[in-house]
Amino acid sequence: EPLWIRPDAPSRCTWQLGRPASESPHHHTAPAKSPKILPDILKKIGDTPMVRINKIGKKFGLKCELLAKCEFFNAGGSVKDRISLRMIEDAERDGTLKPGDTIIEPTSGNTGIGLALAAAVRGYRCIIVMPEKMSSEKVDVLRALGAEIVRTPTNARFDSPESHVGVAWRLKNEIPNSHILDQYRNASNPLAHYDTTADEILQQCDGKLDMLVASVGTGGTITGIARKLKEKCPGCRIIGVDPEGSILAEPEELNQTEQTTYEVEGIGYDFIPTVLDRTVVDKWFKSNDEEAFTFARMLIAQEGLLCGGSAGSTVAVAVKAAQELQEGQRCVVILPDSVRNYMTKFLSDRWMLQKGFLKEEDLTEKKPWWWHLRVQELGLSAPLTVLPTITCGHTIEILREKGFDQAPVVDEAGVILGMVTLGNMLSSLLAGKVQPSDQVGKVIYKQFKQIRLTDTLGRLSHILEMDHFALVVHEQIQYHSTGKSSQRQMVFGVVTAIDLLNFVAAQERDQK
């Protein structure tokens, strides 16, 4: 057995438009009618409502009807409940999964919650491996369901041993009777949507819809739904939504950006999952974080739909894509998950301010006199920076000697690579993860907040409520011999709460 199987392995699926269902090699399930009293909570997966979006479509000038398939009504709160249950049931049916076995899954959280929910009911041990950027709410729900959680670096490539995929496979090879159901490759993922989600949409719309818009992560949702719609409703256009920084969209030119990270969760990847059939997507749109969270908040405030950030991405694209539809036509959007997962993220004004998705003037509360002053007023001194090749031991000596707790790590040209902190280095040394002679590049981390000289002290204040420091950066445009230009970030300084307090105190003292 291989040590790991690539999540982007070539698909062996034989589905073709027009091929009889009787030739399918898979076990198919028909939607079942729910009894009045459910035998367990797993029976509350599927049969989610279709809700008309009344205000947002009109606000953006849509002539067509805009409908939302509300997947956050599933038992675990997301569309991923469907595939989690289906993968477990299919693994039980073919004898792969037996009582007492362990389920391991690399996930952005929602599939993990679905699997942990099913594992709690069915009696399996469950280990979820997820990147650090995923919300604390997801972690809390997983723990409450009895799952064990392993976190991995957000910026690790999918084929790196440190990625959530790599760590999951390492655990599988170490733990007896453990299984990775593997949402990236498992046919049960798109089949769950082909058999149930798509049929529900067709039934709820009486077979009449002209466009379907869905955000894409593993691709199982859009693949399964689109294949069924292509068979039953061939005139329906399928629109895929991919965040900026991901590479799922086609044509490839759409993916060209210097951005590699994004805040919206559960969609987009740096590889093409095996289950994603991009041939059934008629057109791709890219979405960005700001519009995703703005539209998610709009869905909550104006439509009462308590959905997550990827739902915002989907609707932001839908109001663009559906401009081509006329009166009497219908566009369906998939709202994948609930706001429950993001209470401390985009639902929080403070978080939105820190990330730059909300401006101070958007909030009406009274601010102190210094709130709208610029960061450049602080008069920061030149920063202490270190090269990635310097040793951890030497870096600790320098920081202690100069009285700093942290320093930016830059390359020879001064471009920011990340940050090192005294606390992080000492804990890594004590844990045996690094040696004093190791290069400081081994303990770089990139989960820090950046701020510009033109940003306000109010925004800085919000950042420092949650973080010990902020890195002050400025952009530099560099022209190359080819005539092309590129933008790079340079370090201007490091600012802490002490710097802000000293500035405010000094100004008030001078005024007296």
Results as ranks from 00 to 15, higher is better:
I239W: 04
D510V: 13
E291C: 14
V409Y: 08
E360N: 12
F492R: 11
C331R: 05
A321S: 05
D349M: 01
V410C: 10
E412C: 12
D270L: 04
K449A: 13
R400W: 10
E361S: 11
F404I: 15
G418T: 08
C392A: 11
R297L: 08
T279L: 11
Q478K: 13
F503Y: 07
F448Q: 15
N255C: 08
P388T: 06
N288R: 10
N255L: 08
Y479Q: 13
I247V: 13
I334W: 01
Y479S: 11
F346C: 01
T279H: 14
L457D: 01
S481C: 12
E253K: 10
P436F: 11
L422E: 10
Q450C: 15
L358C: 13
L460V: 13
L430W: 08
G308V: 01
E365R: 12
L429E: 01
T391G: 01
V434C: 11
G432N: 13
I239L: 05
T454S: 04
S481W: 06
L426W: 06
T261A: 04
L378N: 01
D362T: 15
T260F: 14
S313D: 06
I398P: 01
A497N: 09
Y445F: 09
A382L: 14
K366G: 09
I444F: 04
R374D: 01
V241F: 08
P408L: 04
F492P: 10
G418L: 01
G418C: 07
I267C: 04
K484W: 14
W351T: 01
S461P: 15
V317F: 05
P336V: 03
G483Y: 11
V495L: 09
A470F: 06
K402I: 07
A292F: 01
S485Q: 01
R509E: 11
A292T: 14
R400M: 07
D242C: 01
E401V: 12
L430C: 10
G458W: 10
L430S: 11
C307L: 01
R278K: 13
F346G: 01
G423S: 08
L325F: 10
S428N: 09
K446V: 11
W371T: 14
R350G: 12
V440Y: 05
P388G: 13
V410A: 10
I498H: 01
A470Y: 01
L353K: 15
V281Q: 06
R297M: 04
V280I: 04
L353D: 01
N288W: 11
H480D: 09
V491C: 13
E465T: 01
E397L: 10
M298N: 12
E401Y: 10
A382S: 09
L500Y: 08
F503W: 15
P368S: 10
N288S: 09
I390V: 09
Y445C: 07
K355M: 10
E263N: 07
E412P: 14
W369V: 07
Q487T: 13
L384S: 14
V504S: 07
F271W: 04
G240V: 15
E303F: 05
D282K: 13
A413Y: 10
R374Q: 05
I463M: 13
Q435Y: 15
E465L: 12
L464S: 01
R452G: 10
D362I: 01
K283S: 09
L254V: 07
F503E: 01
H462R: 08
E401D: 13
M419N: 10
K359A: 08
P383G: 07
R459H: 15
Q489T: 15
T257R: 05
D362G: 10
W370L: 06
V504N: 12
G441H: 07
M425V: 12
V264R: 01
E265T: 04
L426R: 10
N341C: 03
I396E: 08
S310I: 10
K367G: 11
A321G: 12
Q256K: 15
Q354L: 10
V420S: 14
F469V: 08
M425E: 05
D277R: 01
N255S: 07
L471I: 15
L399I: 09
V443I: 13
T279Y: 13
K286R: 01
L422R: 12
V495M: 14
K402R: 13
L453A: 06
D289V: 01
S485T: 01
Q256D: 04
L457S: 01
D510W: 14
F271V: 04
Q439F: 13
K320F: 09
P336Q: 11
A311T: 12
K446G: 07
V332M: 14
T389N: 13
L457A: 01
L501A: 06
L500C: 13
